[in-house]
């Protein structure tokens, strides 16, 4: 329970459904960042405790500072240093919420952990697998962030908001008498409330680690200088200098410490390789399949052919070129509402 409207309402719904509910707040590192909405981090604890009191359930604030630091923030930093664009929410789900916290919950004798994610879990009797499906509120659907969960993790998870729209959730929160019903939505990355990851990196890590280098075009012609590859992502327009035409970051080369820029059309590609693939509706992929693929959270999923390269590696061939396919982001495959699986773009 972060203290936000989603996890608070999820708890309320479970109580109404007759579950015995224990509220847990995960205390995350105080990154020295001040969050307006006070969702994650220390500020959220008070709201979460207040909700638990209102709902009349036991409540514990547990300390996950060190684990979050080691598993999520370190990863976040490492990925940028490796010329990749990280997705910390997926890693937090996989390693903190649905691993460490789930283990803790089992230790408390709990059968499930529940979160305020907009997604659904269904058990497929014929296949004997737990299926991950999109939330009913397509605008809020968060199945993308959950693709890496194992069958064991899904078997012990509940997403009580999966069948509700966000506005209905706010209504329910009001019905439950929760003050947080009109609390603003949390920011994209909980530990960077102002969304300025570049400022976060410089504030938090030794500046000397960020080595300035050259900005080049696709033919290697030098066009300018950059502050360090960590500050750039594919498709970025700002911070690369002014040119006659709008230019974008096309690729980042860690070995040469260079950023290649070019025109928008050069951002489009039709294939990608994904690694560390996790399958949800099947054990493995034997043959190529047609599916919709999503290359970042807000990307409009697009038709593609997924072909196995090895047990954990696939090639994704889109029917049409996609803009700014970015290393480090996840690609998630859908069959309608159902998540087939996903992997990490390399």
């Amino acid at each position: 329970m972060s203290g936000g409207v989603d996890s608070s309402t999820a708890a309320g719904i479970l109580i109404r459904q007759g579950y015995e509910v224990i509220g847990i707040n995960m205390r995350l590192p105080d990154t020295g960042e001040v969050s307006e909405s006070g969702c994650c981090g220390v500020a959220g604890i008070d709201d979460a405790r207040n909700v638990a009191q209102k709902l009349g359930i036991p409540f514990y604030a547990l300390n996950y500072e060190k684990e979050f630091e080691n598993e999520v923030i370190d990863y976040f930093y490492r990925e940028y240093m490796n010329a990749r664009t990280p997705n910390p929410c997926i890693i937090c789900n996989e390693k903190i919420k649905f691993r460490s916290l789930l283990k803790k919950a089992k230790g408390l004798g709990a059968d499930y952990i529940a979160t305020g994610h907009y997604a659904r879990i269904e058990y497929d009797n014929s296949n004997r697998r737990y299926l991950l499906k999109k939330g009913k509120d397509i605008e809020k659907d968060q199945s993308y962030f959950l693709f890496s969960l194992s069958q064991e993790q899904l078997a012990h998870s509940l997403f009580p908001l999966g069948n509700y729209t966000k506005s209905r959730v706010r209504e329910l929160a009001r019905e439950f008498g929760l003050k947080v019903h009109n609390k603003p939505a949390s920011q994209e990355i909980c530990f960077i409330p102002d969304n300025d990851y570049r400022r976060f990196l410089t504030a938090r890590f030794i500046t000397g680690k960020f080595k300035p280098g050259l900005i080049v075009d696709k033919n290697g012609r030098i066009l300018g200088k950059h502050r360090g590859i960590a500050f750039y992502t594919i498709g970025q327009r700002k911070g690369i200098g002014a040119y006659k035409k709008p230019f974008y970051v096309i690729s980042i080369n860690k070995e040469k410490n260079t950023i290649a820029i070019g025109e928008e059309k050069e951002l489009y590609q039709d294939t990608l390789i994904a690694e560390k693939v996790n399958w949800i509706d099947r054990k493995k992929l034997n043959d190529s399949i047609k599916a919709k693929a999503r290359i970042r959270y807000k990307h409009r999923e697009s038709d593609a052919v997924i072909s196995p390269l090895s047990d954990t590696k696939v090639k994704v061939q889109f029917n049409k070129p996609q803009r700014a396919i970015t290393s480090g982001q996840a690609v998630v495959f859908y069959d309608g509402d159902t998540v087939i699986g996903g992997g990490w773009i390399n």
């Binding site: 224990i22 036991p58 514990y60 547990l62 300390n63 803790k104 230790g107 408390l108 004798g109």
Partner: peptide
């Protein structure tokens, strides 16, 4: 075992 888990279990 973690002390924290013992505390929470005993509390319940």
């Amino acid at each position: 075992v973690e002390g924290e888990s013992i505390i929470l279990n005993l509390d319940m």
